[in-house]
Simulated assay, not measured.
Amino acid sequence: MRTRAIRTTIAVIGEGPTEKYYLKSLEGIIHAQVKPMIPNHATSMLELERRIEQCIDDGYNMIFCLIDMDNKKEGRNRENYLRLKTKYHQKTITRKRQGTESLVRFFENERCLEIWFLFHFKYTTQPFNNSNELTKELERICNYEKTEDFLSRKCKGLHHFLLANGGNFDKAIDNSEKSLLSKLKEGREHTYSEMADFFHEVMKN
């Protein structure tokens, strides 16, 4: 008797427009749906939780959240993020009525997704005081701009832009993995990207 293969469905939730445009530029490279669409401003933890719950209700098998850490370093923002992470990260949520199970994973970038972009060009553990410092380093290396016009039109797709300007995807994967190993070894909480883990997960399904 032939059994029908079960298709894995993946939703990827980003926190802001950079994630939206980067994920859009990966269409045809990764087989995951960017859902829901992201507004042109950073989302709150309450909004992120709402989106996670919506994806669970929609029956996605895997729900991957791309997290910028630059606004989660201290105070109420950090408390709210850690609460959300404790509730969902690496947890399988069951909807018995629907007969579905959803694995939720968070993938962090510190300070923000631009550190993953920078890893396409070089490895560093240099601390950046804010996301603007990181953006300026990318601007110096490859003329990157963190503007709506650049992200949506001028760069002609962020993934293509990074490669066309001397970046290397495999190097970025290696540098991401290296940053996580050194983070663990050194006990540091800055300048790292979990995007290598994200791509390992999303590209094997």
Results as ranks from 00 to 15, higher is better:
39 P>N: 02
100 T>P: 14
175 N>T: 03
196 A>H: 15
80 N>E: 15
132 N>Y: 09
43 T>F: 01
88 Y>I: 01
139 E>C: 05
29 I>N: 08
79 E>D: 09
91 K>L: 04
81 Y>W: 14
112 C>Y: 03
120 H>D: 04
137 E>A: 00
204 K>C: 07
166 G>Q: 06
178 K>C: 03
85 K>Q: 13
149 D>Q: 13
159 H>T: 06
188 R>P: 09
45 M>V: 07
173 I>Q: 11
142 C>E: 02
148 E>K: 14
127 P>F: 05
28 G>A: 02
80 N>A: 09
32 A>W: 15
49 E>Y: 09
191 T>F: 03
34 V>G: 05
99 G>E: 11
194 E>R: 02
10 I>T: 15
77 N>M: 06
153 R>L: 05
38 I>M: 05
129 N>P: 04
83 R>E: 13
84 L>G: 00
126 Q>L: 13
173 I>R: 06
111 R>D: 02
58 D>Q: 07
92 T>V: 15
123 Y>A: 00
23 L>T: 06
90 Q>F: 00
110 E>Q: 07
62 M>W: 02
128 F>G: 01
190 H>W: 11
63 I>S: 01
174 D>V: 01
78 R>S: 08
56 I>W: 05
180 L>T: 08
190 H>F: 12
169 F>M: 02
154 K>D: 08
73 K>V: 14
2 R>N: 11
140 R>P: 04
203 M>H: 07
45 M>G: 00
7 R>V: 15
43 T>S: 03
201 E>L: 00
159 H>C: 04
22 Y>R: 06
20 K>A: 12
171 K>S: 00
22 Y>P: 14
131 S>K: 15
10 I>Y: 01
48 L>T: 15
135 T>A: 14
